[in-house]
Design a protein around this nucleic acid. Structure first.
Lengths: 262, 262
DNA sequence: CACGCTTACTCGTATAGACGAGTGGGCGAG
DNA sequence: CTCGCCCACTCGTCTATACGAGTAAGCGTG
């Protein structure tokens, strides 16, 4: 156990009324911000810090748990505590559903990821009829049962997004939309072929901490929120023809919208 | 110290390899989800749970700290641990900058809050010239110095949003935009009067955990992420005339956008 | 050389105890 | 009755200790 390089971290201020574990967290946070520790780099071990600051281990662990909650670091059992690297972000533009983007055969996700040089994957495909939740029913205009299309998106092996599309049965049943692979251009292309020319989308965005299920599905590190996006697609007759409920790892996304200044 | 009502919480499973503090957190989470504890209601005290489960206090505290990280509960020193109430959310529509919404005298924030029956407030007003950050400079087209307008928004006494507008000096200096109160219709009205007719806005949205500064400024509870929104306003000549950097308490907002299906 | 075991180091979980500090109700003095 | 104090209860901070379990490097054996 090598002692900490002197100067890397300072001392505690016993006169301060700031709790010791907060002072330690402050020092580590500042060192990270200043680039003394780089992305992915290992921080001093708990034992190192116990020696350096002369405190008990629980105090050091408390300090680390603060930084974890802030999403700054993550611990790996048996290895150490590391500065959490910022993963590459996926940029979602507001014109991503424009007709011109409906490529042949491949989904927007695949096309875009290929272009960015990363390896895209879609799994957990599930297509089935089910009872509409109260919220989905309200958005689709009081439908009882819906077709649900569930899928998870991964980039370079990392899950980044989990989405479920809900469609009224009278529109989707017996059409390619009810097939696992709906064909080129995705379900929006199919909807238009079925006579539902798309007019506009409405997107609602929230951010919150993930549920335990979401942590598992998206393999989220501590201190990573999720972006919850609910999109409703309207056809030219003003009918809501699809609701898509998406949960995204917030550290993997930047959403981008263009608004007219009308 | 009254014993816990039997049936409210179950027992631990000693054969499970799930950690005890996680099992306790699971039980509390489920009880909250099922409505056994309502919003704002007090959960059993640490001492109660120590007795009920026959574990040490740190184990119970670990369980609570998980739930805090999930934003489900919050602790109040000397009072107890409570189910975190969901505050009323502010809905931001994508047409909120439309010209027709530029009311006389009052800002959009005030008008909207009044309409919703809550008490709006704006403070921390600061208007000054400063050096542009690298990011702001890039967005505004390589300007060195900018006019920065900082303000914090509160609803019913609770801070919900902290925003800074940056404008190029050659546009803003010496105009009402450089005054604390820019007058009716806000700075967008002034920009148009100055010949910069607004064409469109671009908004970038991220979500992440707050920095300690943001926690203080927005008085955020544990487990509440922030929404970071960066808006750039473009005039009809394609010039970026303002960048607005906004940090919002994520539990107080729903963003809503309308997209054409062009 | 290759494989497997040992070992040191890492974080994870849990116990027991101590003191501090904020809150709020109750009780006693005036 | 009212005010102020006290006390019980609450969470916050910190120490000290123990064992478990994952990781990786090194060493010894075949």
């Amino acid at each position: 156990m090598s002692p900490l390089p002197s100067g890397l971290l300072g001392d505690l201020d016993p006169t301060s009324d700031r709790a010791v574990f907060r002072q330690i967290a402050d020092q580590l946070r500042e060192a990270i911000d200043r680039g003394r520790f780089r992305e992915g780099e290992k921080l001093p071990s708990e034992a190192d810090l116990v020696d350096h600051f002369g405190v008990s281990r629980m105090t050091v662990r408390n300090a680390f748990s603060i930084l974890q909650g802030e999403g700054l670091v993550h611990a790996e059992h048996g290895r150490g505590v590391f500065v959490r690297p910022r993963p590459p972000v996926r940029r979602l533009a507001s014109d991503r559903f424009a007709r011109r983007h409906r490529e042949q055969g491949k989904s927007a996700f695949i096309v875009e990821a290929d272009a960015a040089g990363s390896h895209p994957q879609v799994d957990s495909l599930e297509v089935k009829e089910e009872k509409a939740s109260q919220d989905v029913s309200a958005r689709l205009g009081s439908v009882r049962r819906v077709l649900a299309r569930r899928r998870r998106y991964l980039l370079d092996g990392r899950p980044v997004e989990f989405a479920t599309s809900y469609l009224p049965l009278d529109i989707a049943r017996g059409t390619p939309i009810a097939e696992p692979n709906p064909g080129p251009g995705g379900i929006y292309a199919r909807l238009e072929e079925l006579g539902h020319r798309l007019d506009h989308f409405e997107e609602e965005i929230r951010a919150r901490m993930p549920s335990p299920t979401e942590v598992k599905t998206l393999r989220l590190a501590a201190g990573v929120p999720v972006i919850h996006l609910i999109r409703t697609a309207f056809d030219t007759e003003g009918r809501a023809v699809e609701v898509c409920d998406t949960v995204m790892a917030a550290d993997a996304y930047v959403l981008s919208y263009q608004l007219p200044a009308t």
